[in-house]
Design a protein around this nucleic acid. Structure first.
Lengths: 336, 336
DNA sequence: ATGAAAGCGCTAACAC
DNA sequence: GTGTTAGCGCTTTCAT
């Protein structure tokens, strides 16, 4: 039967007392610091095991006046992109050493739950945030409180890792235009200052082609919101022959809306998403989508976070990756 | 310009000095403890705001010898079920008060990253774990180190909240049998002691009907693993006319495998998943699936966690919810 | 209503 | 190689 650690977890003092040495040695032993004889070390580990001692990383950070935990903020746990970013971040962090504390904003009910706040209170040393929706000034303020790496969105003066949304949205829009579409609509996410590059790039591309952009903002980033908004878009007098959406979830919603109205894809409506999620690849879905290389994004963010942790004075990082349009069967020339 | 808190975040002492009172009063004020005059309180909050003081929840926990953070372990961030559980847990936790620290096991690459371990090191007061794959004894050991609530899986002697997998798997299997299928296969997840109720229930249901069960374990819980395993299943001499899978991701993989082999669903193959995920509901996917009410599961777990935190001596909770089979177009009678 | 002092589990000089 | 001591930011008796 294991010792009952529930009442009072063993501490370094307990281990020290058990072995008959000072707390310092126990501390040194556990951190692999030099200056502990092999024998003592053995004895310490032995006693620690027996007592069920586990280092208290939190107290250690407090004493060290140095926060080793990295906080990862994810905007939307239901979006695969964020799972990929998490994966990437993990790859970049050393196996042990840095603890990773997660915090997600909206999960299904749109409840924020003070996700960022909880990271700050947990006293992480740095926050990797994907995706921040706040205005730039607010992000800068946050970065003042705790070092921040902004992922998927560039913020001047703050370490940023992102995909070139301008290029991605342009590629998507041009793909539709090159197929012969003229009434190409854009289904945007909710309006947030920091998240409008795709929309702007779409609108510019349309105007450059001499066409009138039509953007509709959904009230959320979810499939349901996409369905609601797309229904509006598709029941207009002159409905668009193609829709480019801010993300795949919105595209899937638009897809449901189209089928609900009896429209075929790509026969009556071409559809381009953004994220290149796993669902987009399914047989029968075959959604044309822009891949933003989320795993690479996460990896870069993790690396930058580590550097920032080690050197607060390092120059601000600004890393931009190039997205890639993946063409599938949801896009085709418009019906004649 | 905001004060630069990066160099040294303001502490209670700073605030106390600023106001000209003792640290104790600042502490009292921030916790709403009685015994601080209205005026002093005002002055303290004012100074705190000016200095950009933020309470250090971690240090507070240390001093209080009481851990207020609740840790949430999620097995698979790419599975919607876990996003729903997170939502439910959040609903149950009071807005402020308890910090929620997340930790996920496999994200995309199967890297564990010591997810549970990191929760323990973060010194959470209780861990809500969904889904633990370890054998019962190991779970009991863990629960010794820190109170644990097991979600989606019952463990004797440990607070548990789960869905009735036996009933769910039976309903799924019986549905296929009632359609007239006789060669019904089961695509299970990787073999873990704690996660075999669905498989066992399927096998029992088959035998009770006088049929021979055929179970194949995928090497992961992912769509890719499902596709690999299902390809094996479907290229046998006598291929099954129906497959019941451990979860929706495996079902989606089986779906890809079927299409890859030129088989129609449900014409040549009936398919039943588990989770009733959003993808299952998509037009063109229409996957028959078992809903385990993940949000309710999370809510119950959160409630139980709070109770356990307040009363370590409370009787062990065992809460079982009833799942529900949702029939869609992926199931039909077998071809004659 | 307010403050002094001890202590939470740990690290980090600095002695010996 | 080992021990002493003074914190880290906070809570909590116990005085005043």
């Amino acid at each position: 039967m294991a010792p009952d650690r529930r009442l009072r977890p063993a501490t370094q003092s307990d281990v020290a007392r058990e072995v008959g040495v000072s707390r310092t040695l126990v501390s040194f032993a556990f951190r692999g610091a030099p200056g502990v004889s092999g024998e003592t070390k053995e004895a310490i580990f032995e006693a620690a095991r027996r007592l069920g001692y586990r280092p208290n990383a939190v107290a250690a950070d407090l004493a060290r006046k140095h926060r080793s935990a990295v906080g990862l903020y994810l905007m939307d746990i239901r979006n695969e992109v964020y799972a990929d970013i998490l994966s990437g971040v993990r790859m970049a962090l050393p196996q042990d050493g840095n603890r990773l504390i997660l915090s997600v904003s909206r999960s299904v009910d749109g409840v924020d739950g003070g996700a960022l706040e909880s990271l700050i209170e947990a006293r992480v040393g740095i926050i990797i945030a994907a995706t921040l929706l706040d205005p730039d000034e607010r992000v800068l303020e946050l970065a003042q409180i705790v070092p921040l790496v902004s992922v998927t969105r560039p913020v001047a003066g703050v370490d940023s890792v992102y995909s070139d949304d301008v290029a991605g949205a342009r590629a998507a829009t041009e793909h539709l235009l090159s197929l012969g579409h003229r009434r190409v609509a854009h289904l945007a996410g909710p309006i947030y200052d920091g998240h409008i590059a795709r929309r702007q790039s779409y609108e510019k591309t349309m105007r450059d082609a001499g066409l009138k952009p039509q953007t509709l903002a959904a009230d959320d980033f979810t499939q349901e919101a996409g369905q609601r908004a797309a229904t509006l878009l598709l029941t207009q007098a002159e409905r668009p022959t193609a829709i480019f959406t801010h993300n795949d979830q919105l595209a899937l919603g638009a897809r449901e809306a189209a089928y609900g109205l009896g429209l075929a894809i790509p026969g009556d409506l071409s559809l381009v998403g953004y994220d290149n999620s796993r669902t987009a690849k399914l047989h029968g879905i075959d959604l044309t989508s822009v891949d933003l290389h989320a795993i690479a994004l996460g990896q870069a963010a993790g690396t930058i976070a580590l550097e920032r942790l080690n050197d607060p004075e390092a120059p601000v990082a600004d890393k931009r990756l190039t997205p890639e349009l993946v063409v599938r069967d949801s896009t085709a020339p418009p019906a004649p």
